[in-house]
Design a protein around this nucleic acid. Structure first.
Lengths: 243, 243
DNA sequence: CAGTGGTCTAGACCACGCG
DNA sequence: GCGTGGTCTAGACCACTGA
């Protein structure tokens, strides 16, 4: 393990990457104490504060934990964690080892309803992209999805946008990264129409997911209502205590 | 706004608390630029690094966001966020303005099944507390819940533990804070037995939630399988991009 | 007691945004 | 060019842990 002080890559970042690798490799075993912050600082010939920045980030991400007066240790978890976080349908399916796909069912530019304008925090007479798609996994229907995106935040859309990464387009168009989403999950039973589009029996269990996604400054840029097949989809996530 | 350098409360923490208050009050408005880190440092007569520690924490918690070369700004979100994170059923219901309750349906000390031993990462012949409860909100059944907790991680349990906060007991008993949980959510339809205990019709939508909860060092200490009434419960959460 | 992480200082240079 | 956040230094004192 060594660092390159001349590299344009920040030192704390180099340390983080190497420690993550060592944890994944098993070179650093779960519950094993790391060398102390002062040892790392001396070993690399850098300041202790720089070491702390690296370690603090890894603690926040759950790779390490600290104990006052004792030391810093490797966390047991995190080795097999998909580490999902906020993902698009496409990323979600890929991380499950399935081939994502999509069939456009409807596209329109519509005036915002009162409900959507309020959720999206946009002016009342504003226009929204309305995109309804059947989402596929390994060519089999997995979910039915209706997205609403303010025209102001995406500009004109065409078929190419529906195929490639919409999230990247949004980040570029607004010059601001995506940072958070609020989701609401509720069980239900498939309606006649949902059942037909998803290829299941009416009355079969479905998982309704409503998502509102926000840019870094807290502006909402999309609202999505979807219905996932209960027989093929389990929603998995990780939560942190307090914060 | 001012800080007390003599106080035993860390300076960065004092700054964090006051900024959060100002954001909630509306003294600091959404998208408004904060004074620069150097201004705060001079105003309080402290080092810039200390100011940065306070601001960085608030950025991680989603109250603020930074832009290189421009400044630090107040995030729009977060003002009304319940800021849930990992909570117990009791905390969850309280945050929804409902009175939580509980009815013990079954308690046993059982030998771990292979499945549970593997999930909990405990030795095969180990003993588990098995606790089945009907969870109430405003005295109406909300969920059916089966918890499995290794005896090693909780010691002997009696009625008082089922009434008070189990999580606090666990943290004290193990001398280690709870930090994370993995959850799996799946829709389903109520079985005959579930329907009776929950007071709903067989075949009505239910939300199955499986949770495994971990201490800071990554040791699993409980596995919970629950069934929530679909007509009275929506699961709400927030996700962060990347990480 | 020595070693650890937690907090803090008073500087420094950089790349970036904006006028 | 000037102010911003991003990174980094070389120290310091504290409270806590464990032998």
């Amino acid at each position: 393990m060594h660092i390159d002080k001349q590299s344009p890559i920040p030192i704390y970042f180099q340390i983080m990457e190497q420690l993550k690798t060592q944890i994944k490799n098993g070179e650093l075993k779960a519950d094993a104490p790391l060398p102390s912050e002062r040892e790392y600082a001396e070993q690399f010939g850098i300041s202790r504060m720089t070491v702390r920045q690296a370690l603090s980030n890894l603690v926040n991400e759950g790779f390490l934990y600290r104990q006052k007066g004792r030391g810093t240790f490797v966390s047991k978890l995190k080795m097999e964690q998909p580490l999902q976080g906020l993902t698009s349908f496409t990323e979600d399916m890929r991380s499950r080892g399935m081939k994502p796909g999509s069939r456009l069912a409807e596209y329109q530019l519509i005036p915002a309803t009162e409900e959507l304008a309020s959720i999206l925090g946009c002016g009342y007479p504003s226009m929204l992209h309305k995109i309804i798609r059947v989402r596929l996994a390994n060519d089999i229907p997995m979910a039915l999805e209706a997205s609403y995106i303010p025209f102001d935040m995406a500009g004109k859309l065409d078929a190419s946008h529906f195929r490639s990464s919409m999230y990247e387009h949004i980040e570029e168009y607004n010059q601001m990264p995506i940072s958070r989403a609020k989701q609401e999950l509720e069980p239900g039973t498939a309606s006649q129409e949902e059942a037909e589009l998803l290829g299941i029996q009416p009355g079969a269990p479905v998982l309704y997911i409503k998502r509102t996604t926000y840019l870094q400054d807290g502006t909402a840029f999309e609202h999505v209502k979807s219905a996932y097949r209960g027989d093929r989809y389990t929603f998995v996530h990780y939560m942190d205590r307090v914060k």
